[in-house]
Amino acid sequence: MDETGKELVLALYDYQEKSPREVTMKKGDILTLLNSTNKDSWKVEVKITVNGKTYERQGFVPAAYVKKL
């Protein structure tokens, strides 16, 4: 869990989004878990840094590609 009590997951593999509802992640990324009720895909939040500014983006990733921490 992070400092706000949200559950975290670790990306086990790289994943490139295939639709606007998904998010891209790299192996080793730590993501905030938002919903894990679907056995196939979990909703997560990723933090992306562009030019020194951090943005948050929500979307789905394959459940088999992440592990709860």
Score class of each variant (00 low, 15 high):
Ser36Cys: 14
Ala63Lys: 06
Trp42Gln: 00
Leu34Cys: 05
Lys27Ile: 05
Glu22Lys: 04
Asp29Asn: 04
Glu45Gly: 12
Ile30Met: 04
Lys6Phe: 11
Glu45Arg: 10
Ile48Lys: 06
Thr54Phe: 08
Leu10Met: 13
Leu8Asn: 04
Glu22Gln: 05
Leu8His: 10
Asp40Thr: 11
Gly59Tyr: 05
Thr32Lys: 12
Pro62Asp: 05
Thr24Arg: 05
Ile48Ala: 05
Ala63Gln: 04
Ser41Leu: 15
Ala63Asn: 03
Thr37Ala: 11
Asn38Gly: 09
Leu8Cys: 15
Lys68Thr: 07
Ile30Ser: 02
Ser19Cys: 10
Arg57Met: 08
Ala64Ile: 11
Ile48Pro: 00
Leu69Ser: 02
Leu69Trp: 06
Lys27Tyr: 04
Gly52Lys: 03
Met1Tyr: 13
Asn38Met: 09
Pro20Asp: 12
Thr4Lys: 12
Lys18Tyr: 03
Phe60Asp: 03
Glu7Arg: 11
Tyr65Arg: 05
Val44Lys: 00
Trp42Arg: 00
Thr54Leu: 10
Thr24Gln: 04
Thr37Phe: 09
Glu3His: 14
Gly52Gln: 04
Thr49Arg: 09
Gln58Ser: 11
Leu31Lys: 01
Lys67Leu: 10
Pro62Met: 05
Lys39Thr: 11
Leu10Gln: 09
Glu7Thr: 13
Gln16Glu: 14
Ala63Ile: 05
Thr4Trp: 11
Lys47Met: 10
Tyr65Pro: 03
Leu31Pro: 00
Leu33Asp: 02
Ile48Gln: 06
Glu7Ile: 15
Gly28Ile: 04
Tyr65Val: 09
Tyr65Glu: 04
Leu34Trp: 02
Ala11Thr: 05
Lys27Gln: 09
Lys18Cys: 11
Lys6Ile: 12
Leu33Trp: 02
Tyr13Trp: 10
Pro20Ile: 08
Thr54Gly: 05
Ile30His: 02
Ser19Gly: 12
Asn35Thr: 05
Ser41Asp: 07
Asp2Leu: 14
Lys18Ser: 10
Ala11Pro: 01
Lys68Gly: 04
Val66Leu: 15
Lys39Cys: 12
Thr54Glu: 10
Gly52Glu: 06
Glu56Met: 15
Glu7Trp: 12
Leu12Lys: 03
Asn35Tyr: 05
Val9Gln: 00
Tyr15Met: 01
Ile30Pro: 00
Gly28Pro: 00
Asn51Arg: 07
Gly59Pro: 00
Lys43Ile: 14
Thr24Lys: 04
Gly59Ile: 06
Lys67Gly: 06
Pro62Leu: 07
Asn38Phe: 07
Ile30Val: 10
Lys6Val: 14
Arg57Tyr: 08
Leu34Val: 10
Ile48Tyr: 13
Leu8Tyr: 15
Glu17His: 08
Lys47Phe: 08
Tyr15Gly: 02
Leu12Gly: 01
Gly28Asn: 04
Asp29Ile: 05
Thr37Pro: 03
Glu7Met: 11
Thr37Tyr: 09
Val50Asp: 07
Val23Asp: 01
Asn51Phe: 06
Leu8Gly: 02
Asn38Thr: 06
Gly59Glu: 01
Thr4Ser: 13
Asp40Ser: 08
Thr49Cys: 15
Lys67Ala: 10
Thr4Asn: 13
Ala64Gln: 11
Glu3Pro: 13
Asp14Ser: 07
Glu56Cys: 15
Lys26Phe: 09
Glu22Val: 03
Thr24Ala: 05
Leu34His: 02
Asp29His: 04
